[in-house]
């Protein structure tokens, strides 16, 4: 127990927690969207994220940068970041579509029991992570020093770095965009209708297969964005980076109420904060324990998460 240090560091812990939490939140969207639609834990989503993180590193490498290069000037950095975001999002989105096509669609056509989906997802996850592992010889890949963490603003004695501000802002923008897409657009209405009642939606002329593909694509895109932020934060990636983080992101989704977009944001941020506060009080090695203990306590009092399950249910 280190309560005095905890109170001294609370500002910093909050900011790190929020930036970590926004990565969880973006990552969690993939779980929550697919679950809301298909009642299925998309176990392979962690590998979708991992592919995105490698796509970003690959982009920078292709443009001639590795972990030993100098930090380029600001406009170049911005261009590089945008390029990496685009490539990573597309790569993750494509991977998610591929997983849906290879691992889930054939089972759906055969009316398989729900557990079968979980197992093909596990299979797909193993295949993807091993495939990348073999390609990279299981070595970690370094990220070029694009963004030098520099204090940007100071609030109440807490320095907030440009990277943290960027991460939180980007996550909020991406989630706001997704929320608008789901609640305002024609496609979003399709998603909500299928998640409410697949049969009726199909009778009303919604193409269920297309909606399912779209949801996987959206989840993949968000995971790609999260992957770039993760690369910059950690400074590298590994073929097995997705699994541990995926467990956390799924926890975040459940914490906020799985199937609920805003729940994913809330869950991600809460999880990030709880983890960092827990690490501050009990020591770094216990931060996972605090995260899962929080989950159990929340589920005991709110069995469907903080905001409850609803992709289409709450407001149609």
């Amino acid at each position: 127990m280190h309560f005095s240090e905890f109170w001294n560091d609370i500002g910093e812990l909050t900011v790190t927690g929020l930036s970590q939490g926004s990565i969880y939140a973006l990552f969690a969207l993939g779980y929550t969207l697919v679950y809301g639609l298909l009642r299925l834990i998309n176990f392979a989503h962690s590998e979708v994220f991992m592919v995105g993180s490698f796509a970003a590193v690959g982009t920078w490498k292709a443009l001639g940068l590795d972990q030993n290069s100098q930090t380029p000037v600001l406009p170049v950095v911005l261009l590089l970041l945008v390029a990496a975001l685009l490539v990573a999002a597309l790569a993750s989105g494509a991977t998610a579509l591929l997983v849906e096509l290879v691992a889930y669609r054939p089972l759906r056509h055969r009316n398989a029991p729900p557990l079968a989906f979980l197992i093909t997802a596990i299979g797909a996850s193993v295949v993807l992570s091993e495939f990348v592992g073999i390609l990279t010889h299981r070595r970690p890949q370094g990220v070029p020093p694009l963004v030098e963490p520099r204090p940007l603003v100071t609030i109440a004695g807490t320095q907030i770095t440009n990277l943290q501000v960027g991460t939180i802002a980007l996550a909020l923008v991406a989630m706001f965009g997704l929320d608008v897409f789901i609640h305002r657009s024609r496609w979003g209405r399709g998603i909500r209708s299928v998640s409410q009642d697949p049969t009726t939606a199909a009778l009303m002329g919604v193409n269920r297969s297309q909606v399912i593909s779209l949801v996987f694509l959206l989840g993949g895109l968000m995971a790609g964005v999260a992957a770039v932020m993760y690369d910059l934060k950690i400074g590298g990636t590994r073929y097995d980076a997705g699994f541990a983080l995926g467990v956390k992101a799924f926890t975040a989704a459940v914490l906020g109420g799985i199937g609920n977009l805003r729940g994913a944001l809330l869950g991600g941020l809460c999880l990030g904060l709880a983890e960092n506060y827990g690490a501050g009080v009990f020591g770094t090695e216990w931060h996972d324990v605090v995260a899962f203990a929080l989950l159990v306590v929340v589920l005991m009092f709110r069995p469907t998460g903080l905001l409850g399950e609803s992709l289409g249910r709450a407001r149609a």
């Binding site: 093909t120 193993v126 295949v127």
Partner: peptide
């Protein structure tokens, strides 16, 4: 890798 593929194929 082969193991993962086998899981998918068996389940399908």
């Amino acid at each position: 890798l082969i193991f993962g593929l086998m899981i998918i194929i068996i389940m399908i």
